[in-house]
Amino acid sequence: MAGSNEAGKADALQPHGAGTLRLSRPVLLLLVIVVLFAALVALYGFDATAQATVNGLVAGGYLGLGAIGLSLILGILKLVNFAHGDLLVAGAYFTILFGWLGLPLVVAMLFAMIATAALAVLTEKVVWQPLRQAGAGTLQLFLSAIGLALVLRFGIQFFAGSQVRTLGADIVSSITIGPIHLGTLQAVALVTGLVVMAVVGLALRFTGIGKEMRAFADNRALAEVSGINTRRIIDVTWAASGFLAALAGILYAVAIGSFNPNFGVTLLLSLFAATVLGGIGNAYGALIGGLVIGLSQEWSTLLLNARWKPAVGFALLILMLLLMPQGIFGKARRRS
């Protein structure tokens, strides 16, 4: 505890700066994406590339929304929340539960998001807050996160079974725009994902609580001395994290069509990749990171067999950790 506090203070003393590098990396990223797109069009034709790009944006939507909570929690609480993937799963299965109770699908989804937000806050109250107060170390937090992940995942599996399920929506109809074929549900997921990403981005930028959350994730020590209500921020962050995770899980379920309780753990490393890519604690970064990972995975299907898709996420995660651990939007920090 003392160590991280001290590091925070040291950071607080240093002005934000060295602007040239911070500006150029996102520009570089955009450039890389454009060049890659052009190269893929040249190699595989426009139609195939555009289709893969749309698929990538669909995936980017749920990955980006899923990664926000992971990134904020990691930034604010220094907690690697292995149970985050299972919050996505909880969102999908709460939807099934509320649908089974007779609610219309969209209402069931909304209830599911609220229920998952409550679940996330509950884990804070029951598990994380007591652990922090006991001064838990990195290993203790890791093991607890893993324990919680197992309890959630297999808890869901215990009640819902491990068989493949759907949300019970229409999965056959599709839309065709020029060369691009898109399931109606995928289109809905795409539009919802992008709209919510924009809304979240605006909320973080312009609402008071959004600003406080970002300030807190960026520099906890500085935020605390400036009189922010710590407890409230942490609770709101957990609630937002759970809510968005549930939405991401639902979008995944809608876009992919069928799922089982293991999909969260399968997505988790991709979510970590998005988080690290965007810079830990940086919510916008997580959104962009999610889009980049989604695009990379779908574009990779043009070159490789589709079964290697998740491996692209793992590889990007490792590459980012090794080459750019502060992420694309993070500022270089002094190693303590």
């Binding site: 203790q140 093991l143 607890s144 893993i146 324990g147 197992l150 995942r153 808890g155 215990f158 491990s162």
Partner: peptide
């Protein structure tokens, strides 16, 4: 299937309770 799930839930609780 439920028994298999339960075994993992038990492992999870071990990790949670003991590390606390």
């Amino acid at each position: 299937g439920q028994q298999a799930s339960l075994r993992f839930i038990i492992v999870g609780f071990f990790l949670l309770l003991l590390s606390r």
